[in-house]
Write a protein that binds this DNA or RNA. Sequence first.
DNA 1: GGTTTGCGTGAGCACTGCTCTCGCTTGAGA
DNA 2: TCTCAAGCGAGAGCAGTGCTCACGCAAACC
Lengths: 236, 236
Amino acid sequence: MTTVQGARARARIEITAAIKDEARRQLAAEGAAKLSLRAVARELGMVSSALYRYFPSRDDLLTALIIDAYDTVGAAAERAHAAAVRADPRDHLAHWVAVCRAVRAWAIAHPHEYALIYGSPVPGYTAPQDTVVPAARVALLLVATAREAYRDEGVALPPLPDDLAPEAERLAADLAPDLPPALAVALVFAWAQLFGLVSFEVFGQFNRVVEDRDAFFATAAERLGREAGITPRPRA
Amino acid sequence: MTTVQGARARARIEITAAIKDEARRQLAAEGAAKLSLRAVARELGMVSSALYRYFPSRDDLLTALIIDAYDTVGAAAERAHAAAVRADPRDHLAHWVAVCRAVRAWAIAHPHEYALIYGSPVPGYTAPQDTVVPAARVALLLVATAREAYRDEGVALPPLPDDLAPEAERLAADLAPDLPPALAVALVFAWAQLFGLVSFEVFGQFNRVVEDRDAFFATAAERLGREAGITPRPRA
DNA sequence: GGTTTGCGTGAGCACTGCTCTCGCTTGAGA
DNA sequence: TCTCAAGCGAGAGCAGTGCTCACGCAAACC
């Protein structure tokens, strides 16, 4: 599908990628606050103003990094999910936990990129439309996992209070019309809570509180799965 | 207790407070990234270098704001808790929910201050020791609420997996020696998950997803309370 | 082959955090 | 009461930032 392009078009793609790579390096090293266009340009051997041919502003560079970050964490989660399905196609709780662990592992390995997407929004900055699809990737994977469990095993969930019923219908209609509203609500809860756990760990809130964070997270992820209606696989 | 102080000492206190106030104003208006010492000084009619007599660096100013933010959200939560106890001393789930709502309300009212304390750590920045006591204030309140419920009504919690048992003992010993380890773990879960929910709302992750956020959060807070072992009050 | 378009250059503007020296003022000790 | 160190504000200055703009060169299109 990629037609043979002129040298110029190809150079543009390569330079754009190089800028993002170098920016990612600085991001990983120093954090978003100290990411500087001039330093990126310097490191790439170009003059700072040249960089504006590729990204009209610092915020646009950050937005590109944000989209990439959403995509890589989404891809990592999807890989982990696929591997878990391969290992045991029927153990849906294991699939769920695998997704959670993948998100956590990626976050710990790339804390500054994680902060970029799940921390405080950086500048003035309202998330552009381009970010919403990649941002939904992990969420949709959680929904898909819960859906498979629901199809295979059904679900028993606590009833919803009346005043949440309209919201629950709306949520279900938006993100999973084939699932019961109570499950849609439980999934959104679990989704937010998963990132609450990961954020607390990555952002240091667990310092001097939780020591054995692997075991802690494993249990938490499993409980989240159960709250999302996924029953553990009965022992064979 | 406050001895009569010289005019100089008093001026120092007042100016320090004025700097923090103005900084908070700019923080609320533009966010931490755009908080500038020079702008604060300008607004206060002093020269920027004078400000360094009061805060040795921008990070120190931010740290002061962080401590204040932890304290105000903690105070708000404590007020809400006290009011709920006054309204019905036996309804522990209502006390819990009141604390959660107070945290959320404060976060929504002061999103940038919330981001400062529960978002991504801002600069290079490792949290100084001074912040850990105020930071624990909300957490300790949650523990206290759960403790009262536990004393009055006991608790039934899911069993912990074996590999989490040592961590659970440690947690219980550190933050509530009088509570069962499984409850200590459940409390840390609930604590992280509470701020996961609030962060997702404040940081815009719920945009285009959750509409009726009041009802959504109310249900979530109640479920968190139940997971933390607080049973609803039986109807009188 | 001529022209439009894309792109790197370098100067420059307004801003930032932070440092340093210079004086004035305050307040505690002799 | 006088003295002198300490506290404090002023101003200049350094190094760095995001971003803009006119300028030329080179590639791509007609």
